[in-house]
Amino acid sequence: MTTAVPASSAGASSAASPDRAARTQSPFWRNMRKFADNRLALASGVVVLLFVVMAVAAPLIAPHDPNATDLFRRLQPPAWMAGGEWAYPLGCDALGRDILSRIIYGARISIFIGTAVILVATTIGILAGLAAGYLRGWVDTAISRLVDILLAFPYLIFAIGLMAMMGPGLSNIVIALAYKEWVIPCRVVRGETLAAREMEYVEAARALGAGRARIMWREILPNILSPVVVVSTIRMANVIILEASLSFLGLGVQPPTASWGSMVADGRAFMLEAWWVSTFPGLAILLLVLSLNVASQGLRDAFDPKFHD
């Protein structure tokens, strides 16, 4: 380093960054690192993950069979209250079933339905939104009108009607909720696609001879996934509440299967003498939904294109 100063040609000096593992420099990983910097969002994400683990490993974790009734333990209070015992930490319901175990098993229902509905809805939404936004014309008109019509129905009443028509059952709940849920990702995808299709890199792909399908899947879709992921997590919370509402109304999961919504409904009659029957499943709903919402906020902050690029 004495005499010659390195001549930097256009390529030699990178204006951006030194050679790191380049793949981790992808926009997605950059955003995820930004998400991880947000402590509250990260903590919420961990809580959501814990719920998922709880749901998956329910048979291993749950201290009791969620459906085993024991009339001697009818409305037994939580462990720390008089008459409680630590084998049943959150107490028992009107049939003497362990509330903690039922909450653990209930997580399966909430998370399964939430995930299934969002997966189905997002898949349909992406397909319809991409088609409407990229192809335009009559495809766009048809899809957009359908979306408008579906949006005009009140969500819950719509779902109640469908459930009444189809009858109860897990897959029917998924259908009843996804039936309308897809319009949300569809609108997001359509809007983002409309913006992305005008980008010069899309024109470049067309100039290179790429066909419509390729442009939609390879050029546009990767660039619009971030907002879709963000919206999906927000909507997942919503779907979980809707499922709980349906179960609360007796139109969702049928007894004796444990579901947070139906557990809250079961406890209504004993709110005064046995508050824990409704309160703990209610808190479970609250915690999961709140965590999902905070995590999705964090995702949105990390992914929002206005803050970078």
Partner: peptide
Amino acid sequence: MKMRRRMQIIFQDPYASLNPRKT
């Protein structure tokens, strides 16, 4: 499509013309 091999375009905006998700 075959013809496109023979005629190409270079764009104005170096930021909008490259797909940010691709290497």
